[in-house]
């Protein structure tokens, strides 16, 4: 599994498509058999406490794409703080288990693992 991270609108989806994946191969549902899981930050935010349990499903994917969300100020609402925390922790776990980690900035991918 390759983890692709980067800020909102940094060019992650364009990068995925540049690797040859089509729209039909990209989904937001970790449970289906699409090779690419996109928007992990939203999936994890739905149930922050259960986010870690997604790990086995995510590791079956070829690509997992997640926004980096930890470089802003602390959110005002508790549920947002919990979601932000869960997304960050999940990304650390994913990165640990990933074969590769790619960070996209201004549309430019850099392999960081």
């Amino acid at each position: 599994m390759t983890l692709i991270i980067g800020g909102r609108s940094a060019g992650k989806l364009d990068y995925v498509k540049s690797l040859g994946y089509s729209e039909e191969q990209i989904s937001r549902d970790p449970g289906d058999d699409c090779p690419v899981l996109y928007g992990l930050q939203d999936t994890a935010a739905e149930d922050p406490e259960g986010a870690e349990a997604l790990l086995p499903l995510l590791l079956k994917k070829e690509l997992v794409v997640c926004d980096e969300v930890g470089c802003g100020v602390i959110p005002l609402e508790k549920r947002d703080r919990q979601a932000r925390e869960a997304i960050g922790r999940l990304c650390v776990l994913l990165a640990k288990n990933a074969d590769r980690v790619v960070r996209v900035i201004a549309g430019i991918p850099t392999v960081i693992k």
Binding site: G6, G7, R8, S9, A10, E68, C71, R84, A106
Partner: peptide, 11 residues
Amino acid sequence: VTNEVGSGYDT
């Protein structure tokens, strides 16, 4: 010169 602003948590 530009700025990275997309890595916060969007609330």
